[in-house]
Design a protein around this nucleic acid. Sequence first.
RNA 1: CGGGGCGUGGCGCAGUCCGGUUAGCGCACCUGUUUUGGGAACAGGGGGCCGCAGGUUCGAAUCCUGCCGCCCCGACCA
Length: 489
Amino acid sequence: MAKEITNREENYSQWYNDIVKKADLAENSAVRGCMVIKPYGFAIWENMKAVLDQAFKDTGHQNAYFPLLVPKSLFEAEEKNAEGFAKECAVVTHYRLQTDPDNEGKLRVDPNAKLEEELIIRPTSEAIIWNTYKNWIQSYRDLPLLINQWANVMRWEMRTRPFLRTAEFLWQEGHTAHSTKEEAIQEAELIHELYARFAEDYMAMPVIKGYKTESERFAGADNTLTIEALMQDGKALQAGTSHFLGQNFAKAFDVKFLTSENKEEHVWATSWGVSTRLVGGLIMTHSDDEGLVLPPRLAPIQVVIIPIPKPSDEIMEVADKVAADLKALGVRVKIDRDMKKRPGFKFAEYEMKGVPVRIGIGKRDLEKGMVEIARRDTKEKASIALTDCVSHVHGLMTTIQDNLLARAKKHRADHTSTVDTFDEFKKAIAEKGGFVYAHWDGTEETEDKIREETKASIRCIPVDTVDEDGICVYSGKPSKRRVLFAKAY
RNA sequence: CGGGGCGUGGCGCAGUCCGGUUAGCGCACCUGUUUUGGGAACAGGGGGCCGCAGGUUCGAAUCCUGCCGCCCCGACCA
């Protein structure tokens, strides 16, 4: 069973790659660092997208779309932002190819088609968007401006991994403008909370909410709020960020508005995003050595019905009826009618693909008025009376969703330490892994030293922990609050 | 950008050192039959400019030169 999936213990990152491949989520493409998201993987992203999109709309945001290419002069306008992303930008320099005179059948870049100004393939869209907002905002009556875009972006990363870090990735990026600082901060916090709830309620992936230290902050932001999840291998995954941008972009792009008192002021801004990286987080939170495990709320197929041959009209009738009744309850259900594949093959296949519930309907069970119901999360199999099947399975959707969240929370609790000395710190990081709460003196110097010596970085300064006097585990200087450390993806 | 490795049917590989029948194996694929309650068996079949370009040779997947591409390990990152 579970042929060809590497055990997590043996090689976690190979296991991850195997899951991506065996569950048919994505594959490498002909383009360096860029993956092809296959239909099943894309369906998971589409489900995430649908929920988030609705949540953004419910909180007053509208979707729009801005260009892929950003003129270099706009890109460099906000200096910190430009600097932060400069090293990983793909740049368009020419607009035409021609047949190569020295190399028949080949094309070359037409040297006469050089662009006057280079175009940057967006690594994020603040620049082009703020240049546009300048024309949209004149008065306090134009505010707040609450825009989201679903888009692809490109960051020329040195090393890539499917979903977790690809050169091109899909995401949503919200860009809002406000008349006051307080309102912008509230917006950033609203989205931060929205992301955290999405992660827990839909992905069943518990997260720590907090804000980033200055060195980990988004380039061009005054504050970066983050949600941090703990993966099964004890490493942290930054799963979503929401930035308070202050007036940095408003000043860089000269976006001003008139207040009701007829005073000219720069607007206040936020930006926020989650990406296809969430799919990677989903995989690494729940899956096991048999394959993918998906929470029902995001699973493209929530229930698969496998008629167990010999094929018979009676079995198919029962399957159709069960499927129809489940659909009526809003359950995403598939009947596998492929009679060429044997049941054993299908069992393994749907386990690999993480389908939460499998219903086996065969002659032997049916004679007793029973069906077989298998849960992907616990791998339990049960014989259930056909008459109870639909309500039982419907109930399992919630049961499994809750169980996955509880399991992930337990894993996180088991891999979270609170330490007071650097020895304890190093031991916790090296032996146990996971999250470590420790006092920090607030300096970048200490942060860097700890990262160098332990590979662990400050994931965030959590918002939910209480103030508590202590001394920095590294420097011994006073500290008012523990921060969250971990090795990160 | 440094260090290591690899390019051979769709995928994974053998063959390369030491040149020589028709380039082979597993998986996948197609057809047929028997099967079908945990990854079916048998029979038959299709598919290769051996990464690209030169060179050496009677003869090159194999030797030589150049180029291209990819993967892994480090510095960068959602």
